[in-house]
């Protein structure tokens, strides 16, 4: 690969973020642990009755994963802005949107992928029928990158502000309502033995749109954040 080419720049950013995550691999376990804790609490809250748990399993898994992703999103750009790495990314010859896309990809690999891996465990703790499992995994595989991309736009917007945290959650809620509706809807349909590909297709359409637009929007938002 020629240094300075677009491919090498993407590889450099991706490899950098993955290496950084690996050096602090304890942090990767945090969202997974969080999801486990929340899922464990549900049977205590609503009772251990299998039929009731199976009824809410899909929804609980999605909300839990959503919150776990949100938890890890806040740091997406903040560290880079604080140590000056963001300036280096912005001045690079490649489009910022592309580099931001790579950062989101690295974030998805390190925080959402582990959640997808443990999702079957979470779902079976809540007695989700095995028949609905493929729908759950497919929906998660499309919904989590969508959440990471949408979240990246909002994190970029709050990057220049004093506080985020709750504000980020408030801003993210309207954006993830459709994601949760279609993802959990697919699982619910699968559980009832209905065709569940239509909501998955809507999610897929959303993902395609987000892959194109979200990095551009994040880059524009980061430029606003760096104007200080």
């Amino acid at each position: 690969m020629i240094p300075g080419s677009t491919a090498s720049a993407c590889a450099a950013v991706l490899q950098r973020d993955l290496t950084l995550a690996w050096r602090r691999r304890g942090d990767i376990a945090m969202p997974v642990l969080y999801a486990l804790i929340v899922t464990t609490l549900f049977p205590f809250a609503v009772g251990p009755e299998p039929a009731l748990l199976a009824r809410i399993a899909g929804g609980v898994v999605f909300v839990t994963v959503l919150l776990a992703v949100l938890l890890s999103l806040d740091q997406l750009f903040r560290a880079d802005i604080e140590d000056g790495s963001m300036e280096q990314l912005m001045l690079a010859p490649q489009p910022l949107a592309l580099l931001v896309g790579m950062k989101v990809l690295a974030h998805w690999i390190t925080s959402a992928l582990p959640l997808i891996v443990v999702a079957p465990l979470l779902a079976s703790m809540l007695r989700l029928p095995a028949a609905a499992m493929p729908a759950l995994l497919l929906a998660l595989a499309i919904a989590t990158p969508l959440l990471s991309l949408l979240g990246a736009v909002l994190v970029a917007l709050t990057a220049g502000s004093r506080r985020s945290g709750m504000l980020l959650a408030l801003m993210l809620l309207p954006l993830c309502v459709p994601v949760v509706i279609f993802a959990a809807g697919a699982v619910a349909a699968a559980q009832e033995g209905l065709p569940w590909l239509a909501p998955i297709a809507w999610l897929g359409a959303g993902l395609v749109m987000a892959v194109v637009l979200a990095p551009l929007a994040s880059a524009a938002a980061l430029r606003i954040a760096m104007e200080s």
Partner: peptide, 16 residues
């Protein structure tokens, strides 16, 4: 982009 290299107060180094 890339025609300029900038060294600011924040050095742009990843400490890990």
């Amino acid at each position: 982009g890339g025609a300029i290299v900038f060294l600011g107060h924040h050095l742009g180094l990843k400490s890990d």
